[in-house]
């Protein structure tokens, strides 16, 4: 079995007519980390809920760990671990009690149950807090416990819905290391959703960008970045310039694309930034345009996201957050 997760044409409409998923297809290679990106309300959690048997799609099909999510949900449940966006911890229980109950409903008993709980407590650095009620935990500790609970029964496939949201930078790096280790040493297949592009870039072998219930881009981080031809060139001008003049100057430079000029800033793309920069500077000078600074950068996932989702990440976020 090559793909631990496969989904085809998932559609999900909620009561009230919200189309949370509008034909989502995904494939996640066994043993890899897959990143699901997208703004608030894009449908990431809905996809996770369907793949984890919590919710049923209107149409479409999905297979997880080789089992049909709709026909054999019980088999899927045994094979997966899930860390939902909403924690799901019992606040009145201790960390250890949460782990033990989780293990018990998966049929774990006795010494195996207790030693597995202890192992996870140690691994996630929760030893001191393990026997305190979860109500006393910090947000970061709760998130770690969430992941530990999801791993309790040693699942083959792990779903992480925004595992690092709300974590401080240090805790976030810890979580990244843990995710990388799970996928590396333990061979888990991991599907994670996130808002952080750099997180997906660093961890995921492949990723999909979802917007309004559709996959708008899919590939390895490098492929997606490669789709944006070449490097980004960003020039800051000393004085406000007329768009027309500058543009005319730049159009004479070979292999320069996507030119845009706004007030004192100028953006363009080139196959090779290093080769294009001297030509850009020369032609600007010829027009008498004074340059304040030049930067050349490799395309980032932010650029990819902006291009595919067609609107700024922040804009989309705000759109949905409004009640």
């Amino acid at each position: 079995m090559d793909n631990a997760i496969e989904a085809r044409g998932l559609v999900k409409t909620y009561r009230g007519g919200v189309r949370a998923l509008d034909g989502v297809s995904l494939a996640v290679e066994t043993g890899s980390v897959f990143g699901l990106l997208g703004p608030n309300g894009a449908g990431k959690s809905t996809a996770v809920k369907i793949l984890t048997t919590l919710s049923r799609p209107d149409t479409g099909e999905a297979f997880v760990a080789g089992h049909d999510v709709l026909r054999h949900p019980a088999k899927v449940r045994l094979a997966i671990g899930c860390v939902a966006q909403k924690s799901g911890l019992d606040l009145q229980a201790t960390g250890r009690e949460n782990l033990l109950l989780q293990g018990r409903v998966y049929g774990m008993r006795g010494a195996a149950l207790h030693s597995r709980a202890q192992e996870l407590i140690d691994r996630f650095g929760l030893a001191e807090a393990a026997d305190r009620t979860v109500r006393t935990y910090s947000g970061g500790m709760q998130r770690k416990l969430d992941v530990a609970v999801g791993l309790m029964h040693r699942p083959q496939v792990l779903f992480l819905d925004e595992p690092t949201t709300g974590l401080d930078p240090e805790a976030r790096v810890d979580m990244w290391n843990e995710i990388a280790r799970l996928a590396g040493d333990e061979g888990l297949t991991i599907l994670m959703t996130t808002h952080y592009l750099e997180e997906a870039d660093g961890l995921a072998r492949r990723l999909a960008i979802v917007d309004r219930g559709r996959v708008v881009a899919e590939g390895t981080p490098d492929e997606l970045k490669g789709e944006l031809r070449g490097d980004a060139i960003h020039v800051e001008l000393e004085e406000h310039q007329m768009d027309g003049e500058v543009r005319r100057a730049l159009e004479r430079v070979p292999d320069l694309y996507d030119i845009s000029v706004e007030a004192r800033a100028l953006h363009a793309r080139a196959d090779s930034g290093a080769r294009a920069v001297p030509l850009v500077l020369a032609s600007l000078e010829a027009e008498g345009v004074k340059v304040a600074s030049v930067t050349v950068s490799r395309p980032s996932l932010d650029d990819v996201y902006l291009r595919h989702a067609g609107r700024a990440f922040n804009e989309a976020d705000q759109e949905v957050k409004k009640p």
């Binding site: 984890t52 048997t53 919590l54 939902a84 799901g88 911890l89 409903v105 049929g107």
Partner: peptide, 9 residues
């Protein structure tokens, strides 16, 4: 909490 158990067996 309920959803967590619904995802489990």
């Amino acid at each position: 909490v309920v959803d967590r158990f619904l995802v489990s067996p």
